[in-house]
């Protein structure tokens, strides 16, 4: 596994704009012969206020990485921070509270409780915590996601796209440090999927949220500021401002087999299988994000429809 853990950890910790990071993250399942390594020494940091896509073929460990970063799963080795807080070693109760208060979730399907209305689903994490939702923020989120007229509906009365928008609203409602979206468009038709992606983009640009999205769809990844590429439990590539074409191209290279792909230094981004050893191969969106306009670089709802006034308000969140 990696030898330069300490350096990278420092390096990653250097930017206080890190929403989550992991150092030498290892996750294995099973014992002995049946042992499967899902994550094999991953170092990663997720920039605050950024939209990061995690890509990779199935079995590459992309979902596992997300689960570990989100405090849904325990790690076998390595350390994970969420914001400034180390979450490795927390017990179930602490992790549960952490998820409740600091992380938002969107899953591929079955995101909503069928017994609760859309509005109740949106405020669920806060209701569980026994906290009053910030009404003004809630209104903003709801209007951004255009759910105003659906609040009293039950999930069974909503379309798939609407359901995912409600899930997105729920993820945003508590103003979490980080939103994890696991294949949020996987079950949607392309139009609804595009809509959801645009809302996630809007959440980052307009509402200042941090989003990590696991996907295998290059078109989805194209909405992100940065794409991480996992194969065989390692980060094998990373790309800033991905486009559908560039992602697809990269995927085709890796699809032939990550080992074969390793030596290929494509598109200027740090392609090393040990992404950690590479200090800052990309134009580093993390460091100069301030100078960049928060507007979406990719196809997006360019003028943030609803809350045009708020982009800087949640910045400090």
């Amino acid at each position: 596994m990696s030898t330069s853990v300490a350096d990278t950890a420092k390096g990653a910790a250097g930017g206080h704009e890190t929403a989550a990071r992991a150092v030498s993250l290892v996750k294995t399942y099973g014992m002995g012969e049946a042992r499967v390594v899902a994550l094999d020494g991953v170092d990663v940091s997720i920039g605050r206020g950024r939209f990061t896509a995690v890509m990779g073929p199935s079995g590459s460990g992309k979902s596992t990485l997300m689960h570990c970063l989100a405090g849904l799963d325990t790690v076998s080795a390595g350390r994970v921070w969420l914001g400034e807080r180390e979450i490795t070693g927390l017990n179930d109760r602490q992790l549960t509270r952490l998820r409740r208060d600091h992380v938002g979730f969107m899953f591929q399907s079955f995101n909503l409780l069928p017994t609760l209305t859309a509005e109740e689903n949106i405020t669920l994490p806060m209701d569980i915590a026994g906290r009053k939702p910030d009404r003004e923020w809630l209104r903003e989120v709801i209007s951004t996601l255009r759910l105003g007229d659906r609040l009293r509906h039950r999930p069974s009365q909503l379309s798939g796209g609407q359901q995912q928008r409600v899930a997105c609203a729920r993820a945003l409602a508590a103003r979490p440090d980080l939103i994890f979206a696991d294949e949020p468009t996987g079950n949607l038709d392309s139009r609804s999927g595009l809509e959801v992606l645009q809302f996630l983009r809007e959440a980052v640009d307009g509402l200042g949220q941090t989003v990590v999205m696991v996907t295998h769809d290059p078109n989805a990844a194209a909405h992100a500021d940065r794409a991480l590429y996992l194969a065989d439990g390692r980060i094998v590539d990373e790309m800033a401002r991905p486009t559908a074409e560039s992602v697809l191209e990269r995927m085709q290279i890796f699809a032939t087999g990550p080992k074969a792909a390793q030596p290929l230094p494509a598109t200027g981004a740090g392609p090393s299988p040990n992404a950690d050893s590479n200090p800052a191969p990309d134009p580093d969106p993390d460091s100069d994000s301030d100078s960049e306009p928060p507007t979406a670089p990719r196809p997006a709802t360019d003028p943030p429809t609803g809350p045009a006034s708020s982009p800087d308000a949640p910045r400090n969140g």
Partner: peptide
């Protein structure tokens, strides 16, 4: 549902 609830922060 239980998995979802636990994920979004419902304690045991």
């Amino acid at each position: 549902e239980i998995g979802l609830l636990r994920a979004v922060g419902l304690s045991r």
